[in-house]
Lab assay of single mutants.
Amino acid sequence: WIARINAAVRAYGLNYSTFINGLKKAGIELDRKILADMAVRDPQAFEQVVNKVKEALQV
């Protein structure tokens, strides 16, 4: 799951650890299995999560 998430978030200019930190700051409580599945099956929803994380990180 970690490898999938890392590959997906790198397309948005983040790395895995920064993304996970941003999830916590944004108050998003999705587990890694769901995030990895979302990255593959629903990229639009995953992009929305990434955008919320970037807002929380102020990137």
Rank of each mutant, 00 (worst) to 15 (best):
N6D: 15
K24N: 10
I28D: 02
D37M: 05
A56L: 05
G13E: 06
T18N: 11
V50G: 00
F19E: 00
K54F: 10
R41L: 14
I5N: 00
Y12D: 02
F19C: 01
V40T: 14
W1A: 15
N6H: 05
L14F: 08
Y16S: 05
N6Q: 13
A39S: 11
A39M: 09
G13D: 09
F46A: 00
G13L: 02
L57H: 05
V59D: 11
G13H: 05
K24E: 13
N51H: 12
I28T: 04
A26G: 08
L14D: 01
E55N: 11
F19T: 01
G13A: 04
R41N: 14
A45F: 08
F19V: 02
Y16A: 11
L57S: 08
E29L: 10
K54I: 13
Y12V: 04
Y16I: 06
A56G: 08
I5Q: 01
E29S: 09
V49D: 00
L14N: 00
R10W: 06
V59A: 13
V50D: 00
A36N: 02
P43Y: 05
V49L: 12
A11P: 15
L30S: 09
F46I: 02
K52L: 13
R4C: 06
V49G: 01
E47P: 00
K24Y: 14
L23Y: 06
Q58T: 09
Y12E: 02
N6A: 10
K54Q: 13
W1T: 15
G22E: 02
V53F: 01
R10K: 15
P43N: 02
A3V: 06
G22H: 03
I20P: 00
L14K: 00
K25E: 07
I34Q: 08
A56D: 04
M38D: 01
A56K: 08
Y12N: 04
A8N: 02
L57G: 05
N21D: 11
D31L: 03
G22I: 02
L30W: 07
A56W: 07
A45V: 08
E55Y: 09
V59M: 13
E55R: 08
L57M: 11
A36K: 03
A7L: 08
L35W: 03
N6F: 03
Q44T: 07
Q58W: 07
K24P: 06
W1K: 03
V50I: 10
V49N: 04
Q44Y: 07
A8S: 05
Y16G: 09
N15Q: 08
R32H: 15
I20Y: 08
K24S: 11
A3N: 12
A3R: 10
S17I: 13
R32M: 15
L23Q: 02
F19Y: 02
P43Q: 04
P43G: 02
R32T: 15
P43F: 05
G13F: 03
M38P: 01
M38V: 06
V40A: 11
G27P: 02
L35K: 01
N21C: 03
R32G: 14
Q44N: 11
N51A: 08
D37N: 13
Q58E: 11
Q58V: 08
I5K: 00
Q58S: 15
L35N: 01
E29Y: 10
Y16W: 04
I28F: 07
I20S: 09
D37S: 05
L14P: 00
S17W: 14
E55C: 04
A39P: 10
S17T: 09
R4G: 06
V40S: 10
N6C: 07
K52N: 08
A3L: 05
L14I: 09
R4H: 13
A3I: 07
G27K: 13
D37C: 03
K33D: 09
I5S: 00
A8E: 06
A36Q: 04
S17K: 14
V40F: 14
K24I: 14
N15P: 06
E29A: 14
K52A: 12
R4N: 12
Q58F: 14
V59C: 05
W1D: 15
L35Y: 05
R41M: 14
A8D: 01
N21W: 08
A45N: 12
Q48K: 14
A3P: 08
G22Y: 04
P43C: 03
Q48M: 06
R32V: 15
A7I: 12
K54E: 04
N21R: 11
A8F: 03
D37Y: 14
V9Q: 00
N51G: 12
G22C: 02
I2S: 01
L30M: 13
T18R: 09
N21L: 08
L35E: 00
A7G: 06
V9F: 02
D31M: 03
I5E: 00
S17F: 09
L57R: 02
K52R: 12
N51D: 13
G27V: 05
I34W: 13
G13V: 01
V53Q: 00
K54V: 09
L14W: 04
Y12R: 05
A26T: 12
K33A: 13
D31Q: 05
V9M: 04
L23W: 03
T18V: 14
V9R: 00
K25Q: 13
T18E: 08
N21M: 10
K24F: 13
T18C: 04
V53T: 05
I28S: 03
M38I: 11
S17D: 15
F19L: 04
V53K: 00
L30I: 15
I5P: 00
D37I: 06
G22L: 03
A36F: 13
D37F: 08
G13I: 01
L35S: 01
A56F: 12
G27E: 06
R4L: 15
E29R: 10
Y16H: 04
Y16E: 03
S17V: 12
K24D: 14
Y16P: 04
G27S: 08
G27L: 06
R10Q: 12
A39Y: 06
R32D: 15
L14Q: 01
R41G: 14
K33Q: 14
Q48I: 13
V49A: 03
I34M: 13
A11L: 12
V9K: 00
D31P: 06
K33I: 12
Y12A: 06
P43A: 05
Y16V: 06
F19N: 00
F46C: 01
I34R: 10
K33G: 12
G13C: 04
R32F: 15
A11T: 09
N15H: 11
F46M: 03
N21Q: 14
A56R: 05
K25W: 11
I20F: 10
I28V: 09
I5R: 00
